[in-house]
Nucleic acid binder design. Structure first.
Lengths: 168, 168
DNA sequence: TCGATTATCTCGATCGTCGAGACATTATCG
DNA sequence: CGATAATGTCTCGACGATCGAGATAATCGA
């Protein structure tokens, strides 16, 4: 691979980094608008994602999702409950557990903010062909695989080519 | 656009979100490994980016880059200087200003961590054709434009089609 | 030269996070 | 069935990152 080809690929990496920064800024903006901090936003997103899958998060599982200790989760849920974004619901089956339910207003605010972004992203993909989207899809999965390994600290990655055979 | 086509585009949005999470995790890992917090990492990245462009950041510009008040920047630079990652260098031209220079060890650590990721990303793009990479490039720029508008709170986006003409 | 401006730092207060441990509930086992 | 362990959450005290207000020092403009 010559220098020019490498440079083009490096530029995609830089573009990806820039996109990452802007995506983080979207979350930051939601936090600013609603008087929350980044952890609170991450927690609300986690609760909303769980709700979308039909399961109600417990305090403990939320702590795993956002990587906080139980003391911090208690403070976190206190904050969110104080402003009316979530409710604590003791589980009748196991009364040690505390389920978390998002309020309708918080649900609506999240859908408005992040749903609006999703809608606009889909809109911006309108003119892409199926083939083009398939390329992007494959690229995103490949990049995610690499990034995930780095995030887990698992260097080095497998030496490319997942069984395309025919080599030597 | 039928439902299936929309669904495929929504899935790309989800993939992008997942990739964003993993990219953040890479930064978090660097922070963990080196005993830093996320702000410190963002600051080091900002200083390194500036250095790559040949300019030395001042304390004030670093504060703009990572969105911190001057009091926090002082504490931030204190932390980084204490562990030997940056040096304060008073500007001889304007002796109010404090330039920031990264130490060689910090430079090397950053290059090792993030440079390694960049290298692996480029490696994972090896088998993509120029045409495929061009599609990805265009897609990344389009998505960045949408996300950036949301991050700035500038809804709604321009109604698609940048002068493809022929419509009415 | 002298006031206005700029760049950074100091100080005190606030808030998010944590470790240790308390408390209540449920599971396990003799 | 009763004692003990395991589990899930919460309370408390401490620490550290951030901030606003204001101090300090250097530069610029008239």
């Amino acid at each position: 691979m010559d220098d020019e080809a490498t440079r083009a690929r490096q530029e995609l990496g830089l573009l990806l980094r820039r996109l990452n920064v802007e995506l983080d800024a979207v979350g930051q903006r939601f936090a600013d608008v609603h008087g929350l901090n980044r952890t609170d936003v991450r927690a609300l997103v986690a609760i909303m994602d769980a709700a979308r899958r039909g399961e109600a998060l417990t305090a403990g599982r939320l702590g795993e999702a956002v990587d906080l200790r139980s003391a911090s989760v208690t403070a976190l849920v206190d904050r969110l409950e104080r402003v009316g974004h979530v409710r604590r619901v003791r589980d009748p089956e196991d009364r040690r557990r505390v389920g978390l339910e998002m309020s309708e207003s918080a649900m609506a605010a999240g859908a408005e903010h992040f749903g609006g972004l999703a809608r606009d992203l889909v809109g911006a993909m309108e003119d892409y062909s199926d083939e083009e989207l398939a390329v992007v899809h494959r690229w995103l999965e490949d990049m995610t695989a690499v990034v995930t390994r780095h995030a887990r600290g698992e260097r080095p990655p497998p030496p490319t080519g997942e069984g395309r055979g025919l080599e030597f």
